[in-house]
Amino acid sequence: MEKHELMKLKLLSANIRLDVMKMLVHCGYGHLGGSLSIVELLSVLYGKHLRYDATNPNDDNRDMVVISKGHSGPAWYATLANVGFFDKEMLMTLNEGGTNLPSHPDRTKTPGVDMTTGSLGQGTSVAAGIALAMKRLNQNRYVYLIVGDGELNEGQCWEAFQFIANYKLNNCIVIIDENKRQLDGYTIDVINPFDIKKKMEAFGFYTIKVKGDDEEAISKAIDECKQVNNSAVSIVLDTIKGQGITYFENLIDNHSVKFNNQENIDAANEAIAKLEKFVKESLKNV
C-alpha cells in the first residue's frame, strides 16, 4: 500500500474513533469496547474496499455490510457519517427517543445500514442469504459479514458457516473480531473459543489471521480473500476490546461503559484531545 493511501486510512480510523468517543460521551454510556475493536476494519472497508454511493445508500450495485455483532452500532454510525451517508450532527442523537441511530443497527432507520442486527448470530444467516442471492443473480458484489468472537457462542453462527462453506460463497467475506472479551469477561473464561482460525478452517473456510489495528494488513487480507475462488473465506482479526485507547483497553468491564464518573470522563476527553490533534496534523500531510 502506498504511504499516502495508508495515511488516508489512518486518518479515517482516527476520525471514526474520535466520533465514537464523542457519541458515547455525549450519550453518557454505550458499547465502547466492541465498537473500538473494529475501527480499523471499518476504515479499510469504507475507505478502500467497499463499493458504495453515500448519496444513494440503496444502490443496486453496492457491496453490502452486515455487522452481526450489532452492539458495534456506534462504530458503524461514526463510519457512515465520516464517509458522507449522513451529517455528523446526527451522531449526537444516539439512543435518544425517536432517533435514527438506535443502540443496535436498524436497516429501516439508518442510511447505509444494510441489515438489522442485535440478537447475536442472526446476521450470519442473513449475510449468507444475501451472498447466495448475489451469486444466483450473477451479480459481481460482495457482502462483508462482521462477527464477534463472543458471538461465536451462538450456534446459529456455525449453522450459517456450514451453509456459506457448503455453497462456497466466496463473495461473503466473513470477518471475525477476535477481541478476546465478551460481556461477562474474557472469552476463554466464559466459553473457551479454542483456536478460532483452526475452527474456521475445519468448517471449510480459507482463513487468514491478521492484526486488527493494522490497516495495511487488513487490506491485504481482504485482497487475498478475493483471490480465492473455490471455497468460503474468512479473516480472523486479532484485536483488543477498547482498541486504540489504552485506558479503555485496560478497563476491566469495557463492553458497555458509563461516563458517570470523573475517571472515565477524563480518560475519554484525553483520548478525544489526542485524536483531534492527530487528525489536525494528519490533515496537513494527506
Binding site: 442472526q122 444467516s125 442473513v126 449468507a128 442469504g129 442471492a133
Partner: peptide
C-alpha cells in the same frame, strides 16, 4: 435468516 437475506435482493 437465509430467506430474509434473499428477500433483500428481491
Amino acid at each position: 435468516g437465509v430467506a430474509a437475506g434473499m428477500s433483500m435482493l428481491g
